[in-house]
């Protein structure tokens, strides 16, 4: 089976510094790939490049074997779900309206939408009676579940999650980690998941991509990282996180 996403020599430089050196990465169908690394390592930039929030300086993005161009990016976006840390919910719309906004814009059948919505509520374990609340009336965890439903509404082939659990307290976070893993498994969802938490990466991911200073340092499983670290940084990164966990 071919890869769903292929990044070829993709690079991006911001005004003051390079954010991403020319990078190659493939994401296989049904795979959950974790992007991990310290702040500013380029992991969010990589996600933003894929969904077209920033334009690459060099390189190409292939989605399902097709080259993505500025002209066609709009159509690819509809095949991608995007979840960010603060949820990015639209404050003027209820949870329901947030989730259905794009589907309604595309004039999908309302009956189908209703069915899909209750399916998603069950999947994300979101109480249906909260659907008519506005984002400010929801807790952080509830907001992220709504954000996830919005991203999943049109059954995207690729789900991009940029530290979706970063702002949540530990208990809510643990429960959502569990739910996400289950959702990805049941939907056989291809996902690219950004985090800086190694335990979360290990729990949710099939494959972990460690980045530092705009480059991919090592790719594999946590066992690979521990047993065959590509360089000093990998060991340091692993040890720093392990020391935290062992406390």
């Amino acid at each position: 089976m071919s890869d769903l996403v292929q990044l070829v020599d993709l690079s991006k430089r911001y005004v003051d510094a390079p954010a991403l050196y020319p990078t190659n990465l493939s994401i296989g169908r049904g795979q959950t790939v974790i992007l991990i690394g310290p702040s500013g390592c380029g992991k969010s930039t990589l996600l933003r490049l894929i969904v077209g929030l920033v334009r690459p300086d060099t390189g190409k993005i292939f989605f399902d074997g097709t080259l993505v161009t500025p002209e066609t990016i709009q159509l690819f976006r509809r095949r991608i779900g995007y979840v960010i840390q603060e949820g990015g919910l639209f404050p003027h719309l209820t949870a329901r309206a947030n989730i259905l906004l794009m589907a309604r814009h595309l004039r999908k059948d309302e009956d189908e939408l209703r069915a899909r919505l209750s399916e998603l509520c069950a999947l994300t374990r979101f109480e249906g009676n909260l659907l008519d609340r506005y984002p400010v009336e929801l807790s952080g965890g509830q907001r992220q579940r709504v954000s996830l439903m919005r991203a999943l509404m049109l059954s995207p082939e690729l789900l991009l999650l940029d530290e979706p659990l970063g702002a949540l307290d530990p208990l809510v976070r643990a429960s959502l980690q569990k739910d996400l893993k289950e959702i990805f498994r049941r939907l056989e969802q291809t996902a690219l998941f950004v985090t800086h938490d190694l335990a979360e990466a290990n729990y949710i991911g099939d494959e972990i991509v460690l980045m530092n200073e705009g480059r991919i340092v090592q790719q594999g499983s946590i066992i690979d990282f521990q047993q065959r670290p590509a360089n000093e940084f990998v060991s340091e990164f692993i040890n720093a996180q392990r020391s935290l966990v062992s406390l």
Binding site: G52, L53, Q74, G88, F90, P91, M102
Partner: peptide, 25 residues
């Protein structure tokens, strides 16, 4: 910015984005 990013990532045309998301906000 997070709301702008989410709006763009939805794949809505710029005009619709303005009408349905930005102007109401």
């Amino acid at each position: 910015q997070s709301i702008r990013d989410s709006a763009i990532a939805l794949g809505m045309e710029p005009g619709a984005r303005l009408r349905k998301i930005y102007l109401p906000i």
